[in-house]
Amino acid sequence: MNTTKKERIAIVTGGSRGIGRAISKRLASDGQTVVIAYANNAIEADKTVESIIEEGGNAIAVKADISDEAAVSKLFDITEKDFGGVDIVVNSAGIMELNTIVNFNLDKLDRIIHTNIRGTFVVDQQAARRVRSGGAIINISTSVKKLALPTYAAYAASKGAVDAISLILAKELRGKDITVNAVAPGPTATELFFEGKNAETIDHLAKMNPIERLGAPEDIAEVVSFLAGPARWINGQTIYVNGGMI
């Protein structure tokens, strides 16, 4: 498959569901060709691709474990072969396990570190090598770092590392005209968010911000779209997208 030089190509990891799906669809609606990287759920990835194509966009799905250097390198290889290059990389893939520090299963902690920290590092490493001048690298963080909610220590710690990686990479790419930022959503209405929460908890979290509602995946996608396109003077930042809750 070929594209013209004017077209921009985006890789979105974790792009088959939730916030990642909204980001994939928004970038496609902006006119970017989107390569959706998914870990296991080919059905959901294909649904997202089909939805984008039905709406007039261009997308493909590629299976890739973001913590596997060879798999991520192959993901970029496929993108470059099919579309000629990479302009945008959005690292939305990640996992979350919740429990108090005193009771946290350390095997689960290792899994979070492997996916959220190593995975971000591996994807960003390939992006730093391959994203074309004028491009953008965007990592998905979380607002829970500042909220300091009980049971979120492992997840928040992993996303703190994402912020650090983003800031340092932005400085390391000096002179290449590539921006690197992190986007930190607040509570967002996805299947992952609703899982294991009762109505009272959901209502409480929704009202923590002055707008008094949960974020929609499209709210997060809007900011990613801005950073991926016109926002060339925002670099090395973590942008909190949470309705003003912190």
Rank of each mutant, 00 (worst) to 15 (best):
A153R: 06
R130F: 13
I165S: 09
E54R: 04
A184I: 01
Y152M: 13
P150V: 13
K171R: 11
K146T: 12
L214W: 04
A156Q: 07
A22C: 11
I53P: 01
A156R: 10
D87T: 01
L227Q: 11
I9D: 13
S51K: 06
G94D: 03
T13L: 07
L98N: 07
I137A: 11
R17A: 14
E7Q: 12
Y155D: 09
M1K: 06
S225H: 11
Y152N: 09
Q126L: 13
A59T: 06
I11Y: 11
A170F: 03
V35P: 09
V34G: 13
D163A: 12
S73I: 06
I112M: 01
V123P: 06
N40H: 03
T48K: 02
N91M: 02
R132W: 08
R129E: 15
D46A: 10
E212F: 08
A221V: 11
I101S: 05
V180P: 02
D163Q: 13
G20M: 15
R17P: 06
T100G: 08
E195M: 04
L192A: 03
S67C: 01
G134K: 03
I246W: 13
A28L: 12
T151P: 04
E200W: 06
A156E: 12
V144P: 07
I140V: 02
T100L: 06
V241Y: 12
K5L: 14
I211V: 09
L75E: 07
R132Y: 07
K159S: 09
G229A: 14
E55L: 02
T3V: 10
A157W: 08
D203S: 13
N103Q: 14
D65C: 10
L106Q: 00
S51I: 02
P187R: 07
T33L: 12
L27Y: 09
T151K: 04
G18K: 10
E195S: 07
T201E: 15
A157M: 14
I211H: 05
G175L: 06
I165K: 10
I88G: 05
G160P: 03
A45Y: 02
A37G: 09
G18N: 15
I101K: 01
K176R: 08
I9G: 13
E191P: 01
A71I: 12
I66R: 03
K63Q: 05
A64F: 05
E212W: 05
V49K: 01
S158A: 04
A189P: 00
R129H: 15
R118A: 05
N91W: 02
G236W: 07
T238H: 12
T142W: 12
Q237G: 14
Q32H: 15
A231N: 13
N209W: 08
T142I: 10
E50H: 06
E80Q: 07
I23M: 11
